[in-house]
Design a binder for these strands. Structure first.
Lengths: 156, 156
DNA sequence: AGTAGATAGTTCAAGCTTAAAATTTCAAGC
DNA sequence: GCTTGAAATTTTAAGCTTGAACTATCTACT
């Protein structure tokens, strides 16, 4: 009748349950945001992410840096930037002294579009996380902060 | 010098920050799991999800129910099940009395494969969420539980 | 100069994902 | 029996995503 037998197994199960719950919540919110972007702005989450990264760097970013910052593959960014460029929202600019690299930058149109979308986006998130007080948000954020066995670099 | 002016704006910003953090953590864990499944079992997360759902229902599920349970589109499930069937891990079974629907079920091979993968999967999650105590897990889980302005049905 | 290796980016094949259209079958009402 | 609409599934077009192969350029060393 050793009372402490139950614990060890419980921990990994408890973590698994947490993971599944996080996954569910994240996917639900993500789906809602994707839907909103599609309907309201005929756009997508990946496009929004790229534009957000570029918005913070007025000077522009190299494809390189962009893919590192978004943590997606190189080839992935190529496609998204291609389509954004087709729509005139970003532009590729040659770099002096290195013909391998290109700088990607928001156009004026791109900045306008992003500003509009970002405001809407914040509102959607606010609505989706309606039940969360500032304290909860802060608290969960803290717990989450040091979560995934930090694989090294990261930028907020 | 009204001291309470800062609050209202902060809440939506705080929620936004929480959302971005959740997104980052989720993606990081997801990427790690995907990588593991690919390298160790030459498989993918969507395949794992489908097999997990079928594992819980020994009798099998209709395409219909499968896509509802996983919260992905109908057509999506078609493709994943196609590929799983090619590999002999699931089978489609005609339903008596309704020629529109088909039942999808794990094969014996499928059950074996899933049992192995599920054990590994739990271990990976356990390792990835290393910093999380049972109490933290429980706590975050609680906070998350009622999170996304519940859009209706859901099954753990 | 010449070459070896690193770096930046694109292309490719495969799979995932969605929304919308199309197909097939079923159920009900006339 | 016919038809009309609902239900289950697949197909399609477009985009996202990855890892791997490929191209072009640059850097450094000899």
């Amino acid at each position: 009748m050793t009372a402490s037998l139950a614990k060890p197994e419980t921990l990994s199960k408890e973590r698994l349950r947490l993971w599944l719950r996080m996954l569910r919540v994240t996917r639900q919110v993500e789906a809602a945001l994707r839907e909103k972007l599609r309907v309201e702005f005929d756009s997508t989450l990946p496009r929004f992410d790229v534009m957000a990264a570029l918005f913070r760097e007025r000077e522009g970013l190299k494809m390189n840096e962009l893919s590192k910052r978004l943590r997606v593959s190189n080839g992935n960014v190529t496609g998204i930037v291609d389509r954004l460029a087709e729509d005139g929202l970003v532009e590729r600019i040659a770099i002096e002294g290195d013909r391998r690299a290109t700088l990607v930058r928001l156009t004026a149109d791109g900045r306008d579009a992003f500003t509009t979308m970002a405001a809407a986006h914040e509102g959607w998130v606010d609505a989706l996380l309606d039940g969360v007080s500032a304290e909860d948000a802060h608290h969960i954020g803290e717990l989450l902060h040091r979560l995934p066995a930090d694989t090294g670099e990261q930028r907020q």
